[in-house]
Design a protein around this nucleic acid. Structure first.
Length: 635
RNA sequence: GGGCUCGUGGUGUAGCGGCCUAACAUGCCAGCCUGUCACGCUGGAGACCGCCGGUUCGAAUCCGGUCGAGCCCGCCA
């Protein structure tokens, strides 16, 4: 009997050991075909559905590999039939029986195993099951999100979730294959790291051995991979778990997975070339039916991306580009003071043309205005072009017929289109609002082919953004990003003192050797060629408000490492969860994570986070202050 | 920290001030059925409408709070 004897050294072949055959089954539920007719087999799985005809009971047996119909005949095998009669959905069974062709005309074309059935000689119940809290055998039935999360193990039994997790596995597999072939070494870096104040909030872990101190969980292995370059690893990659203690979104979880890679002796061009080739290879392997829109990937300068799409992660599957209306409005007053003020203040007046939206109702327009205001626009002007080509607009009385006609022409709007106009003294607001409108309307109007993969590079981001609250420059992406050689001279302040930055500093115009990869409107990844010279790194950090002492305290390890011979290097980090979500046409990365957290950061299945045992934090020298018992576990 | 949406038998929905001692589908239970595959037929059980409070003669239905889920702003690369 199974499991009755002592485990002994095996005489089975490696092939047998690697096979899917086990002491409970000879075959899986997905592999029997017409050619197997006549075989005696053992097969095991979950009861997907039971159809009881009295003298004849059909059981659809399911596992990861498929579904096989089992038929139990009361007249021939009364014992098996009596067991089958008490079987319910999701019971786990082991069946012994003979594979047989189905009766002529009774084949099921919907099943891969539909030509055959297993005629049961015996039915053994390996495990009984409660009625599940939602349908497992109907993949399209809607289920409350929190129920799915609480019973995630049942959710994963359902086909869609299972298929997405398998696709994700294939994605990671393809990534590894490509990197090994390109000479990369997979290196694991620690999860218990040192806290750095940059970027997102850290998760911290108190140390027991060093009371009063904490580790931080990595936001990414950034510094470590650079140290691996100094170590001469040359090409490193890792499928790395990262942690950021920030509020969650559809594309953001507290913990997530990055493909992290770094290469030595490279330029921007070289990194992008490898990453692009790797992405193409992986895409073709994992989702061979999905066309890549353009090869090589479009490479768009950051400034141009903002100008044309109002986004640094544009969805290139559709047009609806942003248009500058200033030339159309002409010299002097436009007649509309909102436009005049924006232009006089050095701002912009730009527009997009939404196809077929000319018949939008008043309330639909109002909703778009609200949308624009949400992102900082004062308002949203519109001009509609009716079916006969005639323009209608509340601002026509200010602009006059001629300018309205020029606006329509500039926006390339035709009959039935709606021109949406944003004016603001701050050109970043204009770009952001129109960019989001473009994305939103592209979605609503179904302008993007859901099957197409539109990858694109956006490069030469600004080195810094001015942080008006703290009075210093902030790294746009990554404090180690290198500056373009042409812009190296800009890494100075107007005052001449690197520790006294101000908004008008030349540094604000410096561009980074920084590139993002976008896919269908999502930021898929970002990277840069790093600064590998200590002198330049110190200048850059000074602009970011770090004194020498502070710099040494926070980044002493890497600064010191750079004194021992650092190769020029660069790399990228890509979001595996996002990539898998896009590959499976999901808008939330939860759908490609086995055990994700809710938007409030809880795990409904394990009920985490939970209160620590008082002994645990006493041992760490910790005490919770200012948290009442009512607040614990609350928000 | 904030905004919006949702919360009704196991599940998904309907009902949105009295006709609701809550409807429909499916699931569940029982019986019948030898070719079904979302099997079929007959019968049955099952919610007091997330929770607390208020308004009202009367609340699933209106209001406030609270808890939970989702989407978003801030935050985050």
């Amino acid at each position: 009997m199974r499991g009755m004897s002592e485990p002994t050294p095996s005489s089975t072949s490696p092939e047998a050991a690697f096979s899917l055959t086990t002491p409970y089954r000879d075959v899986t539920c997905g592999e029997l075909r017409a050619g197997d007719a006549g075989r005696e087999v053992r097969i095991a799985g979950w009861v997907h559905r039971r159809r009881d005809h009295g003298q004849l009971i059909f059981l659809d047996l399911r596992d990861r590999y498929g579904i096989t119909q089992v038929v139990v005949n009361q007249a021939e095998t009364p014992q098996a039939a009596s067991v089958a009669a008490r079987v319910r959905n999701e019971f786990v069974l082991e069946i012994r029986g003979a594979v047989a062709h189905r009766l002529a005309g009774m084949e099921n074309a919907k099943l891969a195993t539909g030509e055959i059935e297993v005629q049961a000689q015996s039915v053994e119940i390996l495990s009984e099951a409660e009625t599940p809290p939602f349908y497992i055998n109907e993949p399209d039935a809607p289920v409350d999100e929190s129920l799915r999360l609480k019973y995630r193990y049942l959710d994963i039994r359902r086909r869609p979730m299972l298929e997405r997790l398998m696709l994700r596995s294939e994605l990671v597999h393809a990534i590894r294959e490509a990197h090994y072939r390109a000479g990369f070494v997979e290196v694991e870096t620690p999860i218990l790291l040192k806290s750095t104040p940059e970027g997102a909030r850290d998760f911290i872990v108190p140390s027991r051995l060093q009371p009063g101190t904490v580790y931080a969980l990595p936001q990414s292995p950034q510094q470590l991979k650079q140290l691996l370059m100094v170590a001469g690893m040359d090409r490193y990659f890792q499928i790395a778990r990262c942690f950021r203690d920030e509020d969650l979104r559809g594309d953001r979880q507290l913990e997530f997975t990055q493909l992290d890679l770094e290469m030595s002796f490279v330029t921007e061009q070289r990194v992008m070339d490898f990453v692009e080739a790797m992405i193409v290879e992986v895409s073709r392997k994992v989702v061979p039916d999905r066309p890549i829109q353009q090869l090589p990937f479009p490479r768009i300068d950051y400034a141009e991306a903002l100008e044309r799409f109002g986004s640094d992660k544009p969805d290139l599957r559709f047009g609806m580009e942003l248009v500058d209306l200033a030339p159309a409005l002409g010299e002097g007053s436009t007649g509309f003071h909102v436009f005049d003020e924006a232009l006089a203040a050095g701002g912009r007046v730009k527009a997009i043309a939404a196809p077929g939206m000319a018949d939008a109702s008043r309330s639909q327009i109002d909703e778009l205005v609200q949308f624009a205001r949400l992102y900082g626009a004062g308002g949203l002007a519109h001009v509609s072009v009716d079916a006969d080509g005639a323009a209608h607009s509340p601002i026509a009385k200010f602009l006059g017929e001629e300018r309205i006609a020029a606006v329509i022409s500039a926006a390339a709007a035709g009959p039935g289109d709606l021109v949406l106009i944003v004016a603001n003294a701050n050109h970043e607001i204009v770009a952001d609002v129109l960019g989001r409108l473009r994305q939103e309307l592209g979605q609503r109007l179904s302008l993007a082919d859901p099957n197409v993969l539109a990858y694109c590079w956006v490069y030469h981001f600004p080195m810094y953004q001015w942080d008006s609250e703290r009075g210093r420059w902030d790294a746009t992406h990554n404090p180690f990003s290198g500056v373009l050689p042409d812009d190296e001279g800009l890494l100075v302040t107007a005052s001449g003192d690197p520790y006294r930055p101000s908004r008008g500093d030349p540094a604000g115009r410096a561009r980074a050797m920084q590139y993002d990869i976008a896919l269908n409107g999502w930021e898929l990844g970002g990277g840069s060629v790093r600064i590998h010279r200590r002198e330049l790194l110190q200048r850059s950090f000074a602009l970011q408000g770090y004194s020498l002492e502070k710099m040494h305290d926070l980044f002493g390890g890497i600064l010191e490492a750079f004194d021992y011979g650092a190769p020029p290097h660069g790399g990228i980090a890509m979001g595996i969860d996002r990539w898998a979500a896009l590959f499976s046409n999901q808008t939330n990365i939860r759908e490609v994570m086995a055990f994700p957290k809710t938007q409030s950061g809880t795990d409904l299945m394990l009920e985490a986070p939970s209160q620590p045992d008082p002994e645990q934090y006493a041992e760490l020298g910790l005490r919770f202050e200012g948290v009442s018992s009512q607040q614990i576990g609350g928000r």
